[in-house]
Amino acid sequence: MRSAAPAPVRRSVRSVGAPVIAALLALGGAVTGCASSGPAPAPAAAPSVDAVPTLATADGRALPIARFLISPDEDRRIEAARTALIGSCMKRFGFDYAPPALGTKPDLMTRRYYLTDAASAAAQGYHWGPSADQRQPSAAPQPPAPELQAVLGHGRGGPDSSTEPAGRTHNGVAIPPGGCLGEADDTLTRGGGILQDDAGALEINGRGFTDSMADGRVKAAFAAWSRCMKEKGQTYASPVDAVRDERWFSSPTATAPEIAAATADVDCKQRNNVVGIWFAVETAYQNRAVQADAKRLEQARKAIDVTLANAAAAKAP
């Protein structure tokens, strides 16, 4: 099975046991263009790169936009507070209920530059996660009983929130607008907080990746990688082509040819410092974009901090 791209918003459910390919390839489609009736603007000059680190992997590194996105740790803190708020609200109505646990938000750098771990390549090729026989099927979540659902609600702005009648009660207790989900979200966003990543920050995150892929310095690194791969009997123009090889789609686990290609892929990345060059170039593009939109991005950071403060207060004894 091929996973969907790691969703940028904080409420995404983690995909388990799927190969990395679809999640990574989707990074290039993160930006949508706008049609224009006028002539296309001249492309901006490529930003300069001050230094290129030598990197086998980008794990543990941070891109400039990361500061303006909800991190996995921040996401966990917010979700823990939200769970506690919903449970407390539901208890007022006589329900012992907690929302289902959501998947962990993936780190921004997880396989951002495709496969870089030699051990993973040797064991799983381009497949990512536990094997099929290790995965346990999960039962589809059952909808809550009608009375419980009426109290739980759909949150502020949920699909049915606009049709909920005002003044609803349960056992004589007024149901908050949007139900307990709405109350929890209102508490966490009080004072200007946000529960999802800022759209502009997400756009910069996707555009930086796309721009780096088209940059001459990254293309030159890909060309060196391709020559290295050719010497190992692997014919691919870029790491993207290696991941996209249709042969890998036909098997739920890595085959011997896939492992051979993946192992060569990682070695050639390391020999030619592909990750270091790619990371440096993308950092330069993101730095330029962040500087151009600094005021609005700082507002997004403040909004995240408001939510985190509200989450900490909600969990305080």
Rank of each mutant, 00 (worst) to 15 (best):
G216L: 12
G200H: 03
A224C: 02
A223W: 00
G193S: 03
M229S: 06
A214E: 04
A223Q: 03
Q196I: 02
N205S: 13
R190Y: 00
D198Q: 05
D198P: 01
S238F: 03
G192C: 14
P239R: 01
D215P: 06
R217S: 07
A214Q: 07
V218Y: 00
K232W: 01
D198F: 04
L195N: 03
G216M: 10
W225S: 11
G233V: 07
T189I: 12
T235S: 13
A199C: 06
D185F: 04
T189E: 03
I204T: 01
M213G: 09
K230E: 12
M213Q: 08
S212K: 02
E231F: 07
G191S: 11
G200D: 12
K219R: 07
R190A: 14
R190Q: 14
D211P: 07
A224P: 05
G206E: 10
D197Y: 00
D198K: 01
G233C: 02
T235E: 14
G216N: 07
W225I: 06
M229W: 00
N205V: 15
M229G: 09
G206P: 05
Q196E: 15
R217N: 04
A220T: 04
T235G: 05
K219H: 02
Q234A: 14
G206K: 06
Q196T: 01
R217E: 11
E203L: 11
M213S: 10
E203M: 08
F222N: 09
I204C: 08
C228T: 03
A201N: 14
Q196M: 09
D197H: 00
A221D: 09
Y236N: 08
